[in-house]
Amino acid sequence: MALFLQRLVDGLSSGSVYALIALGLVIIYRGTGHLNFAQGEMALFAAYVVYQMGEWGLPIGIALVIGLATGFVIGAVAEVGLVRPISKKSPFAVFIVTIGLFQLLNWLSGAIWGDQVLPNSGVGSKQQQYPSLFPDQPDDFVKVFGAAIRYQSLGVLLLTLVITGLLFLLFNKTKFGLAMRAVASNAESAKLVGIRVNTVLMVSWGLAAAIGALGGVVFAGINNSVSLGLMFTVFIYGSAAATLGGFDSPGGAVIAGLAIGVIENMAAGYIGFIGQEMKLAVAFIVILVVLMVKPSGLFGTAKVERV
């Protein structure tokens, strides 16, 4: 029971990160219909920025705000400067540009902060560990039925739920959210009724990148370090969550993200055959099966294809 609970909480906490990445993917997909392959690396860059703020001695709150702002700017600039002009050419060109952005951001992170795992006293890090949003000392946990539930895990889960709630309010209760939904539904008509589609798309990408950035910071916090390969697998889990939940359903993305986190942890823990090495196969199989059986995902709307 204790072990089960432990794995459940661990699963939910990594699932929260997947949910945040998936949320970013979904917001972009709803806005411009693109799959942003650079989502993970945008988050990586922001995670490095937060590390740097920590190095400069800023409290985590301010560091986080700067990190998220960086994410927002990267996303918005990427949309305005690259994706919008190139999307007039072909979907393949957009794909290549997001791959180029992936490579560029990964390289930029390495160019600025080096390819070591940080924080690392060997390269002169002042911090002992990555700036954590939540108390993360060895004794920061509460015992429930014998399972050590870390404050960090609870905090991460809570944070994800709060973000989801805020997004729900943004989408459904504000004028800007209405505009976003209008653009998602039909950009042409939205333009006709006077919605500034370009602004909406720019903010959508910024918002998505900022939410992804939060995921990156949180994941680096769980991981206690940040390194260049940090977001590769997280991106795949996030995409698996977005696929399972449906690429146009933010709520679905969160539920699916948490579910995948739990499934993955349980499968690795209880099915000896899978083990820690093949955890990622869970994400792979989820993506494959969902795309083949129900491409719209569990909560998405089916796309009608006109020939």
Binding site: F37, I236, S239, I287, L291
Partner: peptide
Amino acid sequence: YLALVTLA
């Protein structure tokens, strides 16, 4: 989507 599957 195929890109996603092959990436995985």
